[in-house]
């Protein structure tokens, strides 16, 4: 009796000490709710229980074309991200380092950043076709602006005294960039890369869902129209996991490279 009470107390105590355990319990409760709802309350044409979704993941991957579609989407994401970061870094440096250009073009960049780009999605399809090119282009335009803005902000946050002292000690332009500007820009650059990654994900997936001939957008449409929620949920789950992993990778990199400043 006393032992059971003690065990219960230690269980509660353990839960109080470890919020992540409670978080897992919350997730488990939500999954259980979903399971019950799907099994007993909702039409199986619209929702299937998570157990069934997980069990049939292999069937999703077994569907002809799905692995290739995932690969294609991952390829689009990678290319779009690399392009967005490269273009954003170059433009951000040009805009951030020249005061006149910054004053002239930074407001334009901010205005474009605020625009709901999804309104011009049909234009991208017209210009770049329904293949991978339009997805990449749309991902780039979503990802490039956060990178530009953060790079400009990072260059601007540089203390002028550092530049003046570097110059007075006879640093060349390249040396100033390499040893003063670049290291100070790194933390905000990685913050921009993280924001750029979520932008690229949004852009590519929006374009995929809009029209697609071989990417995952094709299969989400197919599964929706066939009323096959098991496969649809499985595919979306895989994509969500992919998004979480990509975000986590960029975030790790950011924490890693921003560390020197806080120490």
């Amino acid at each position: 009796m006393a032992m059971a009470a003690a065990r219960r107390r230690s269980l509660l105590h353990g839960l109080a000490r470890r919020p992540w355990l409670a978080r897992l319990l919350v997730i488990a409760a939500l999954l259980a709710l979903w399971e019950v709802a799907a099994r007993f309350l909702v039409d199986p044409l619209f929702l299937s229980p998570p157990s069934q979704v997980i069990m049939s993941l292999d069937k999703v991957f077994g569907t002809r074309g799905v692995p290739a579609a995932l690969q294609l989407t991952l390829f689009e994401l990678t290319v779009a991200f690399v392009l967005a970061v490269a273009i954003g870094l170059a433009l951000g440096l040009v805009i951030g380092l020249q005061p006149l250009i910054r004053r002239s073009f930074f407001p334009i960049v901010l205005l474009l950043y605020c625009m709901p780009q999804v309104t011009i999605l049909p234009l991208f399809i017209l210009f770049f076709g329904i293949g991978a090119a339009s997805k990449i282009a749309f991902g780039v335009t979503h990802g490039v602006f956060p990178v530009i803005v953060t790079v400009v902000a990072g260059v601007q946050n540089l203390k002028p005294i550092l530049l003046v002292s570097a110059r007075s000690m006879g640093a060349s332009r390249w040396q100033m960039f390499r040893y003063v500007i670049f290291p100070h820009m790194v933390p905000s650059f990685f913050a921009g890369m993280r924001l750029g990654m979520s932008g690229v994900l949004l852009g590519v997936l929006l374009a995929e869902l809009y029209v697609s001939v071989a990417g995952i957008g094709y299969f989400t449409t197919l599964f929706t129209q066939n009323f096959d929620p098991t496969k649809l949920l499985g595919l979306i789950g895989v994509l969500a996991a992919m998004a979480i992993v990509l975000n986590a990778v960029v975030r790790r990199a950011e924490n890693h490279f921003a560390r020197w400043r806080t120490e």
């Binding site: 619209f46 979520s198 997936l205 929006l206 869902l209 009323f227 649809l232 979306i236 979480i244």
Partner: peptide
């Protein structure tokens, strides 16, 4: 401590992915 990381993690997923489900429902 329990919920904030959970919400932040979900926030990092592009929820537009779930559009087909919303249309289905």
């Amino acid at each position: 401590a329990v919920f904030e990381p959970l919400f932040a993690a979900i926030y990092s997923i592009p929820i537009i992915l779930f559009l087909p489900l919303f249309v289905l429902f």
